[in-house]
Design a protein around this nucleic acid. Structure first.
Lengths: 225, 225
DNA sequence: AAACGTAATTATGAATTCATAATTGCCTCA
DNA sequence: TGAGGCAATTATGAATTCATAATTACGTTT
């Protein structure tokens, strides 16, 4: 018997969950903004039932906030919550790094090296978008390589919550250089198979990223994110 | 203006989420078991709409698994997933320990000391239930004291997922003694304000707990949890 | 008798309807 | 003129209905 993956047939509410989540992450639905069921139903061309199911899920994920009889709003992330999320992300990435180190085969390593090269190239040519994409690929690959599906899930949720903030601020030149250097260090540890070392750097990488983002926000003086 | 907490008026679906989750955690709904909407609706005396909303939320939390047009089943936790959950819990508790250490005031400390005493007393008198309760109080207090609401949320979810397994196996005499000793160590670090030390022990505490539970399961030879 | 195909039944996804809480707007009265 | 209260409107929570996918039961055929 060959191994076959189950046939995927997303239901409306599943589709709506990802569509709405993306709208929030991409900041097209703003924090604090009311989410009018009626309008969204018309926009998506669905009835209220699947939309409401999706909102319940998003609420449990923390992206929207429900008030009984008063509808849903996009959750307003405070500076505090952003900090909290990063603190957790730091230890999750550390754990992922430690676990991933031993799990990568040659082909995985080649792929990551390739993405790392692409990242360096994007940095050299000041291609922020391409840099961002390659960067994300690498982190995602390492998280996945941990072999811990729950870790992947929780990381994904938290990463999505801080994603909006990262959208809103542009990396400073200094931070960009620092981030690239950290990635170089990661590759060194990865090649050596130094799991603890990789974990340490990945954690520090997140801590620094957090600091950079918060500094950028402090510069704007905004309380909400 | 006095600080007032918002008026809580849980909706049906919220109530159903906790009720159903409890049924699963307490192993009254068995892993793999079909969840017939109709029956549950009658049992709870509600219509299908709020029940289905609750199922969507539970699915996003991982407690049930949905298949389009084929309904919901209680998620079957594999040994693998249990291990994964514990790995994450370990680093979350470590983080919580590190953060909590500096956050506790005298009144908090007195309360924890009290619960610790109660735990020791329950141990001395072989009162498993009371021991379990006091134990849980302490961990919960430390998690909450971390001041990281997201950490509390993610921890709660993961803890709930392994709770069922902990229900099913009884601590061995050796493990019980070891756990008590670990808690003593925790208190020592806590009193000293040694945040790193507390984190280390809390992490190890979870790692050991995981090992004990897995050993117990291996003894039964069960693959599913 | 077993396997396949088809009809009947059941259960689920989604739309619609209904009841009620919340909000808005208007009116009264100080 | 403004504050308070009441009615009208709107929006939401929940029940019901409808359409269809999945399952079951049965009959046919080899």
């Amino acid at each position: 018997m060959v191994s076959i993956e189950t046939i995927e047939r997303p239901t409306l509410h599943e589709e709506l969950v990802v569509r709405l989540r993306d709208l929030i992450i991409e900041d097209r639905l703003k924090p604090g903004e009311k989410i009018p069921e009626k309008e969204l139903c018309e926009a998506f061309g669905v009835s209220r039932t699947p939309l409401r199911e999706a909102l319940k899920v998003l609420a449990s994920e923390g992206f929207v906030t429900l008030q009984a009889n008063r509808g849903a709003r996009v959750t307003e992330a405070t500076r505090e919550e952003l900090l909290d999320a990063f603190a957790i992300l730091a230890v999750l990435e550390q754990l992922a790094g430690e676990l991933a180190c031993g799990m990568l085969d040659q082909s995985d390593m080649r792929w990551i090296e390739g993405r790392h090269e692409a990242m360096l190239d994007a940095y050299a040519n000041r291609k922020r978008k391409r840099y961002f994409r390659a960067n994300q690929d690498i982190h995602q690959a390492l998280i996945r390589a941990s072999g811990n599906a729950l870790l992947e899930g929780h990381h994904k949720l938290l990463a999505a919550r801080v994603q909006r903030a990262r959208f809103l601020v542009n990396m400073s030149e200094e931070r960009w250089a620092q981030a690239v250097e950290e990635h170089e260090q990661m590759m060194v540890k990865l090649r050596k198979g130094d799991s603890k070392g990789l974990g340490r750097i990945m954690k520090q990488h997140i801590v620094n990223k957090c600091a950079a983002i918060l500094a950028a926000f402090d510069a704007t003086g905004a309380e909400k994110v």
